[in-house]
Design a protein around this nucleic acid. Structure first.
Length: 597
RNA sequence: GGCCCGAUAGUUCAACGGAUAGAACGGAAGUUUCCUAAACUUUAAAUCGUGGUUCGAUUCCACGUCGGGCUACCA
């Protein structure tokens, strides 16, 4: 379907060629939806055209407007304010536009690009449970994946579990020292939380040792390196790398606990992955690329054996890619995994959902991959998102101000339950249905709250205020959907038949209905815009606009009382399409819409 | 120090270089004989500063101020 904007661009270009004998590229013409305060459907900005017409903005606008009305049957009227040409379509046109939208079951889904994209997100450490920061990452990653899919791409959702390294050894050590024998089953503590407790216990132990050493006269820096527990943890890591059976067994057991815990959290969030990578299996990747880099002269080997990539010419630093002992660093591994993924899946691009504290890392990664000669280097995209802050400032695990993911999800559920029970509308629902509904609402509130914010911006999360169900929130959209469903149910009870085949033309949609149709028609543009910007926030705000528009429309349009059957059917059809579009848009955000609430 | 990012009503968020900068929460005042008041209506309230480019700048550029991040042979 041709959007009205494209239609106007095309016709206006014809007008210009006819009026001024100048050919212009239609796509350069600026057309937008007319602002509410002015009369019109779409507005053409004429200022840039003055160099063609060589007259005043008003004269130019009026000339184009008159030509359009005279030559384009779909355009009925126009008015020109300053340099803005407001164009009105005939109501027949809106009927046709709406019929096309209604007939398209997949409205908003963009045509296939034939491209395959991998989206990596979440990528947790296995030494602590997920927290609020991970939630932003997970929700962004999940919705961007859905968004890219709606944009016509094949999407592979991937995560890289950080299951090895000295931090895991710290938890293992603390378990041996303080938690021996305790398991998630024996304690009733969720696995990831139990391991997190071990990590905290290690930190406590370590700090005490450092303090002891300092009290006996050692300086802080040395003490931090010499603390026996830290040395033990490093020894454990060496044993792990040598495949020491005992260490490996403990490691496997504790990781299993964590994975089980994570699975529960992911399930509660409604998130899953197509591909799970484990760092313990991929951390050696990339070493062969070091040799390639040396051969190509991209890397240099220092006398001590370490290998570096000199990026000073690009305004960055020298970056190490191989330690002097021959072991690899994070960058090496990322170079290797990127290369193997592009090769294995024949990817067109790769999106990394990682916090903005790693902007530098990804800048370097792209640069080095480019220098190594990979043509896809420029097609890796770092979806960099800002920190989530609390009213009292940054989350700090040491200060206990971290908002735990499981706690938060539970809190949202409880709040949804309390609000629902207060309204008392759902007394006939079964406990299972209610439970599902509370979860849907609580999660909808959380997801919308996080996703509606532009990813790159630091956002503030106030646990008290974020659990708000009024205003620009997920539950508002969910509530709107439930009300539309209620209207449609009522209509069905009254025996009103409606459906795509019932659409009749020759109706005069009201001004508010035209606004709804216009807004609906914008959906594919919004999807395209969101895909281009990797920003589900665009869709979130659009879904809210739709819901708000419905509330304002329905407030003073007595749909169910309409006597004119054709008009009644048209309006119900409009609501049906509206509900469908709401479901589709929130689907991109991973938010479910209930039929009752 | 160097590099990157951000700054919009009291608060949390919007605004392809376009008209009188939009919402929501909170404040003030109202609305329930179509669906479900988790709604709707009215109202007060903001672009960090100084220059520049432009017919036009919240948006682009420069400088400054403030805030955040990065700057490990950690991941």
């Amino acid at each position: 379907m041709k959007t009205p904007e494209l239609f106007i661009q095309e016709k206006a270009a014809q007008a210009l060629s006819s009026l001024y004998g100048q050919t212009v590229d239609p796509s350069t013409l600026q057309v937008g939806v007319t602002r509410k305060e002015f009369e019109g459907d779409y507005t053409l900005v004429v200022f840039p055209l003055l160099r063609l017409s060589r007259t005043s903005p008003e004269a130019t606008g009026n000339a184009i407007g008159e030509w359009l009305v005279a030559n384009v049957p779909e355009i009925s009227r126009f008015n020109c304010v300053k340099g803005f040409l407001n164009i009105l379509f005939s109501s027949v046109y809106w009927d046709e536009v709406f019929a096309l939208i209604a007939a398209d079951e997949d409205f908003g889904r963009l045509p296939s690009t034939g491209k395959r994209v991998m989206v990596e997100f979440s990528s947790p450490n296995t030494n602590k449970p997920l927290h609020l920061g991970h939630i932003r990452n997970n929700l962004l990653g999940d919705s961007v994946s859905r968004l890219l899919k709606a944009g016509g791409n094949e999407v592979i959702k991937a995560t890289l579990v950080n299951d090895r390294g000295v931090h895991i050894c710290k938890s293992m050590l603390a378990w041996q020292k303080c938690f021996e024998g305790k398991t998630p089953e024996s304690t009733g503590i969720k696995g990831d939380h139990l391991v997190g407790d071990c990590y905290v216990a290690f930190d406590k132990l370590y700090k005490a040792e450092v303090k002891n050493l300092m009290d006996s006269g050692m300086d802080e820096e040395t003490a931090k390196k010499e603390a026996p527990s830290l040395k033990e943890a490093h020894e454990m890591l060496v044993k792990w790398e040598r495949n020491d059976p005992e260490v490996r067994e403990l490691w496997a057991m504790m990781n299993e606990w964590v994975f089980k815990g994570f699975d529960e959290t992911y399930k509660a969030l409604g998130i899953d992955f197509d591909k799970v990578y484990y760092e313990s299996r991929t951390y050696l990747l990339g070493k062969d690329l070091v040799q390639k880099g040396l051969d190509k002269g991209v890397f240099v080997r220092d006398p001590d054996g370490s290998v570096w990539c000199d990026l000073t010419a690009d305004g960055l630093d020298r970056k190490i890619v191989l330690r002097s002992d021959g072991t690899s660093v994070y960058m090496t591994q990322d170079l290797g995994t990127a290369a193997s993924r592009f090769e294995e899946y024949d990817l067109d691009s790769h999106v990394y959902v990682v916090g903005n504290e790693q902007d530098y890392h990804f800048q370097v990664l792209k640069l080095i991959l480019g220098k190594l000669g990979f043509d896809w280097a420029e097609r890796i995209y770092h979806l960099s998102y800002g920190m989530v802050e609390l009213p009292e400032g940054k989350m700090k695990s040491r200060e206990g101000t971290v908002v735990d993911a499981d706690d938060l999800i539970q809190k949202m559920y409880d709040e949804a339950k309390a609000t629902s029970e207060e309204s008392g509308k759902l007394s006939d629902m079964s406990e299972e249905e209610k439970d599902r509904l509370y979860h849907m609402i609580g999660l909808g509130a959380l997801k919308y709250f996080i996703i509606k914010v532009d990813p790159k911006k630091t956002m503030l999360f106030d646990p008290k205020e974020s659990i708000d169900f009024n205003g620009n929130t997920g539950p508002f959209i969910q509530y709107t959907h439930a009300r539309i469903c209620s209207i449609l149910r009522k209509a069905a009870q009254q025996g009103v038949g409606f459906g795509p085949s019932d659409i009749t033309t020759d109706l005069e949609p009201s001004a508010k209905e035209v606004r709804l149709i216009k807004l609906l028609g914008l959906y594919p543009d919004k999807v395209a815009e969101a895909v281009a910007a990797f920003s589900p926030a665009v869709i979130a705000n659009y879904a809210y606009d739709l819901a708000k528009e419905f509330n304002q429309y329905y407030h003073d349009t007595p749909v169910l009382r309409e006597e004119n059957q054709a008009l009644l059917k048209f309006r119900l059809e409009l609501l049906l399409v509206l509900a469908r579009t709401l479901v589709s848009a929130t689907g991109i955000l991973g938010i479910e819409l209930p039929e009752r609430m």
